Amino acid sequence: MRMLHTMLRVEDLEASLHFYTQLMGMRLLRQSENQEYEYTLAFVGYGEESNSTVLELTYNWGDNTYDKGNAYGHIAIEVDDIYAFCDRLKSNGADVYREPGPVKGGSTVIAFVRDPDGYAIELIQAK
Rank of each mutant, 00 (worst) to 15 (best):
Y20M: 04
T21N: 00
L23F: 04
M24Q: 11
G25L: 08
M26N: 04
R27P: 00
L28A: 01
R30H: 02
S32V: 06
S32M: 14
E33M: 14
N34I: 01
N34G: 08
Q35Y: 05
Q35L: 13
Q35A: 13
E36P: 00
E36S: 13
E36Y: 07
T40V: 15
A42E: 07
A42I: 01
A42Y: 06
F43H: 10
F43Q: 07
F43E: 09
V44W: 02
V44P: 05
G45S: 03
G45W: 09
Y46T: 10
Y46K: 13
G47N: 05
E48C: 02
E48L: 03
E48N: 08
E49I: 05
E49S: 09
E49G: 04
E49Y: 02
S50M: 14
N51R: 09
L55G: 00
L57F: 08
L57I: 00
L57S: 06
T58Y: 10
T58Q: 05
Y59S: 06
Y59D: 01
Y59W: 14
N60K: 11
W61Y: 11
G62E: 00
D63K: 12
D63W: 15
N64Q: 10
N64I: 03
N64V: 06
T65S: 15
Y66G: 04
Y66H: 12
D67H: 08
D67F: 14
K68G: 06
K68L: 14
K68V: 02
G69A: 11
A71G: 06
Y72E: 01
G73K: 12
G73E: 15
G73H: 15
G73W: 09
G73Y: 12
G73S: 14
H74P: 03
I75D: 00
I75Y: 07
E78S: 13
V79C: 08
D80T: 04
D80Q: 12
I82F: 07
I82E: 10
I82N: 08
A84V: 00
A84W: 02
